[in-house]
C-alpha cells in the first residue's frame, strides 16, 4: 500500500458525490457546470478535465447535468445508498436492487 500524506479534513458531506464522472469520456467541456441550477460544480482548474463537485449537498437530482451531457456516459448519477430502488423479478419473485457502484 502506497503511503500517502494524511490530512486533517472534516467529514465530507452526504452525499459526497452526487454524480460520477468518467474521465475517459469527459473532455471537460463544462456544459454540466453551465446547466446546473445550483452551481453544484465548478470547472476543473486543469483544462479538459472533468468538473469539480463543489456543492454535492445542494444537488436536488433534477438530472440536467446528466441528461444534457453532449458525451453520453461521461457523467452519471450516483444515487445515495438510501435512495436506491428495489424491484422484483416477475418470473422468479426474486427481490433485486440498484447495486451500481
Amino acid at each position: 500500500m502506497t503511503q500517502q500524506k494524511t490530512y486533517a479534513l472534516p467529514n465530507t458531506t452526504t452525499p459526497g458525490s452526487n454524480v460520477i464522472f468518467n474521465p475517459a469520456k469527459c473532455n471537460g467541456c463544462n456544459h454540466c457546470v453551465e446547466v446546473c441550477q445550483c452551481d453544484v460544480y465548478i470547472p476543473n482548474p486543469v483544462k479538459g478535465k472533468p468538473p469539480v463537485i463543489l456543492h454535492p449537498d445542494e444537488c436536488w437530482y433534477c438530472g440536467c447535468c446528466v441528461n444534457d451531457c453532449p458525451r453520453p456516459g461521461a457523467v452519471y448519477f450516483n444515487w445515495p445508498v438510501q435512495q436506491r430502488a428495489y424491484w422484483m423479478d416477475k418470473k422468479t419473485g426474486k427481490i433485486l436492487r440498484d447495486s451500481q457502484t
Binding site: W60, C62, G63, W79, I95, L96, R97, Q100
Partner: peptide, 24 residues
C-alpha cells in the same frame, strides 16, 4: 417529466427492465 429521466436511466443501467420487473 422533470427530474425523472435520470431515475429511469439509473434503474435501467442497474438492470431494471419494466417488461420483466415490478418496481417497489
Amino acid at each position: 417529466e422533470s427530474t425523472t429521466k435520470n431515475i429511469t436511466d439509473s434503474y435501467e443501467r442497474a438492470g431494471f427492465n419494466p417488461s420483466k420487473h415490478l418496481l417497489m
